[in-house]
Design a protein around this nucleic acid. Structure first.
Lengths: 330, 330
DNA sequence: CTGAAAGCGCTTACAG
DNA sequence: CTGAAAGCGCTTACAG
């Protein structure tokens, strides 16, 4: 059943059926009713790909995620999805599993016009490549970003939030504060490290190079790096960790080493994923507005797609230090 | 830049360019090379929607998930995605957030031919509606299923695994065993409840109606239901809980009530999500082969799409009882 | 091995 | 308000 068949049954032209569906106000009430009756009777559904082809827009956007199983990104994704669906866009999921090759390959969907735009939740590609792409297609970065890149970006200020997290530990009286970073190739890791260093320096605390350990973004890696830190001749009394899942690994390592958190070791995580209030001790962490980041990113993408002007390109969302048991002194 | 432009530059017809891209063996090596040179030089990318329109297949499948932020479903999704991407399919994400209306609306993507097939990870719709849909479109159910429905389905045997979980508690000597179910409108909840009852009955244990509490699929709900159970005049000494996240809520409630797990209360969860080994005490649980379920479901969907015959329709994957601290007697 | 031609099912500018 | 016609960019059956 196609549009011309419906047209015949309703004694109108295909053009009129199309109008009834897409611009009902351009059709007389009487005709509209007659056409709608036929549509309902035969349960006609327009062939969307034909429409996409004709209008040259797919009403599909692509979201590229570094890890779909992450509690953090799935919340951002939900924010994106809500706004997308509310605006009649579908979402194609691009899970890269932190593989830059896969990140790269998803760009083809844009080049081949399979999607109208793209939200990158991971941005490991060349700056020049991204810039070129953004000049040609609607593109928004969220969570991850690229230094000095002139592309719409939504994120928190990772440097200042990491500084805030570290200063919280300093205020608790800690001086031997270690930091377990994420993969240093990722800018988020470098920015959080920067914030840690700023806090240490501005409080006249020495930064022991051995106190900075690079981890991977998972429980086990942080567990191991923590054991390493705890076996130093003067182990730290507090650790700021790249994210919450890793912070749980750190706490587990402390427990397994016979230490109590926060008494023997204070720990601060990052992201405020749901588990941070389930895990014991509850995690002190930096809350990122995950849903809002996704929402904002999708709103920007819609503006780009619709050719609306953007007032500004960098959107810094509000984070918040949330103090819980893993650093609280009773 | 379109195909006919490439054709002109290479001094061939558009048909030949198309063949170079889609059936290179049907073109002479020389011509193929000449065309490829032009394609690379001008960085031509075919317009995928035009191809979709012409071939009447989109190479996109839809996955409908009840909750994208769930640690369980994101693993299933990853299995689906891997097989999809390996077969040049893209995945549109349909997050219903347990809303049957949204589940229903995603069906339009199938009716409007925007996707070649669909994997349902939630199946709350009418049996007849699903059957009708499956007769017309490639459709696979996974995780959730519908009783007596003749549609390809991948899942574990929830009844027997729930029985196994309950019997584990019985073997530990427990007789006062409660069960916190999921929403009873969902078949998974009913099947796990059935398994619980079977285990109790076949071991001559009384099933106290007050020992069966319906929960929602989240930490808080199970926390509250557990408090209710623990305040009974003869509280249970063991609880089998619908899933791991809920089991964590149960354990938290026990702790907050001054009980020790597993000594005062043994707890068994379901799914074996990653957090079940991070949470303390580690959860005894039923492992579901999440990734493999997704993989299998997508493999079946591909067969349906390609018109290959299915040897059977019901695929029961292997689950496993994993005994950890939350029920272990030292 | 290659090309000319038809056609996939819509939408929209144009004419009336 | 409505219709006739063109055309979006490919693929493929057919002919040679």
């Amino acid at each position: 059943m196609k549009m011309s068949d419906v047209a015949k049954l309703a004694n109108v032209s295909a053009a009129t059926v199309s109008r009834v569906l897409s611009h009902p106000d351009k059709v007389s009430a009487e005709t509209r009713q007659r056409v709608m009756d036929v549509i309902n009777k035969v349960n006609y559904k327009p062939h969307i790909v034909a429409r996409q082809f004709r209008t040259q827009e797919t009403k599909i956007i692509l979201v590229v995620v570094p890890d779909i199983t992450s509690a953090f990104f799935s919340q951002v994704l939900r924010g994106i999805e809500h706004i997308a669906v509310n605006n009649d866009y579908q979402v194609i999921l691009g899970d890269t599993e932190n593989d830059i090759e896969r990140e790269n390959s998803y760009i083809n969907l844009l080049l081949q016009k399979q999607v109208d735009g793209m939200v990158l939740l991971t941005a490991r590609l060349d700056k020049s490549k991204l810039e070129e792409l953004a000049s040609e297609f609607p593109l928004v970065l969220a969570c991850e970003y690229v230094d000095g890149l002139n592309v719409p970006t939504v994120s928190i200020d990772n440097v200042s939030s990491a500084r805030k997290a570290t200063e919280h530990l300093i205020q608790l009286g800690h001086t031997k504060i270690a930091h377990i970073t994420g993969p240093i190739s990722v800018i988020l890791s470098r920015d959080r490290l920067k914030g840690y260093k700023q806090a240490m320096i501005s409080n006249d605390l020495e930064i022991d190079p051995a106190y900075i350990q690079e981890g991977e973004v998972n429980f086990e890696s942080s567990y191991n790096q923590t054991l390493k830190l705890l076996s130093l001749s003067t182990p730290p009394t507090a650790i700021f960790v790249f994210n919450d899942e890793m912070a749980m690994g750190t706490i587990k390592a402390a427990k397994d080493s016979g230490l109590t958190v926060p008494d023997d070791l204070a720990v601060v995580g990052f992201d405020n994923i749901k588990m941070s209030t389930v895990f014991e001790p509850n995690l002190t962490t930096i809350d990122q507005p995950k849903y809002e980041i996704g929402k904002k990113a999708m709103e920007l993408l819609l503006k780009l797609i619709n050719g609306e002007p953007l007032k500004k390109k960098k959107f810094v969302m509000k984070d918040e230090l949330i103090i819980r048991e893993s650093s609280r002194i009773e």
